[in-house]
Amino acid sequence: MRLGNFLRKNALAVIALVLVIFPLTSPPDYQFYIVERSLQNAILAIGLVILLGYTGPLSLGHAGLLATGAYTYGILATKAHWPLWLAFLAAPVVAGVIGLALGFPSLRLKGPFLMVVTIAFGEIVRIVALNEEELTGGPYGLQGIPRLINNDLGVYYLMVAATMLVAIATLRLHRSRIGLALLSIKEDPLVTGVMGVDVSNYKVMAFVLSAALAGLSGAFFAMLTRYLNPDSFTILDSATYLLMVVLGGMDSVVGAILASGVVTALPEILRFMERARLLVYAIILLLVIWGPSTGVYKKLEDRFGRKSVVAPGVKLVDRG
C-alpha cells in the first residue's frame, strides 16, 4: 500500500525513469517501436486532455492535426530543404494556427454540431493530402523523411524529454488560474463568464494548445515512420486518441500517458492477424467500452478496490 501511494504521487517521475532505462535493456526492435509510438501518441493525448478533459469540446479531427504536423515537417524537410530544427518547430506552429481556425466554430457550435465540424476538418486534410501529389506524394506517400537527430536513440530520448516537458507543463497549467478557468468552462461556461473569465478566449486557447501538441506529435510521427501516407490519419485514429484520454480518466495527464501505451501496443500486438487485424482491433475497442455496462469493471473494482478504469464520462453533448 505504501508503495502504491508512492507510485501514485510520483507517477510521472517513475514513468520517466522507466523510459530512460528502457533502451538500456536492449529491447527487441518492435518493442522499442511500440514504446516510441506510445510516446508520440501520448503527446497528442495530453493535448486532448487539455481540450476534452479540461475544457470540454469533443474533437474527432485530431488525426487531421497530427497529419498537419507530420506533413509540415515532412514537406519542409524533404521538399523545401529547411533546416530540420526549423521544420520541427514549424509543425506545432502550423497545426496551432489551424487549431486557431478550428477553435472559432467551437464558440458558436455545441456538442454534436462542433463534432461534425471536426470530422469534416479531418476529412478535408486527408482529401487534400491524397490529392496534392506534388507536395504530399498523394496515395504513394511522402518518403525519405530525415530525422532531427539521425540516430534511433537520439530521437527516442528527444521524445522522452518532449513528453515529460509537455506533461509537466500541462500539470502546471492544470493547477494554475488558466487551468481552473478551463475546468470551470467545461462545467458551466455561463458562470465562468460571470466570474470574469473571457470564455471565448480560453476555449480558443485550449484548441490552439491541443492542436499544437498534435502538430508536435505529428513531427515525431514523421521522424519515426520516415514515410507519410494519408491512410495513417483517419477518423479511426482520431477516435483512438479520444479513447486514450477516456481510458486515462479524462483529465489525467499520467492516465493519458499510460493509456496511450496500452492502446498503442494493442494493434501492434495484433499484427500477426494481418487482414483481420483492424476488425479484431475494433472489436476489442468495442468490448473495452462496452464492458462496463456489463458490470465486468464493477467486479474488478470491487475486487481490487481501485477507481474504475473508465471515467464516468462527463456529459459533453447537450441533448437538444
Binding site: E187, V191, T192, M195, L209
Partner: peptide
C-alpha cells in the same frame, strides 16, 4: 445555485479571484 460542482470550495472561490490575477500561459509553463 450554480457552483462548479466538481471543484472544491477553495477552488470555487479561487475562480472568483480570476480577474485579480495575471499569470499568463508562458509564465505558468
Amino acid at each position: 445555485i450554480r457552483l462548479i460542482g466538481n471543484q472544491t470550495v477553495f477552488d470555487n472561490i479561487r475562480l472568483g479571484m480570476h480577474i485579480h490575477t495575471k499569470a499568463n500561459l508562458l509564465g505558468v509553463i
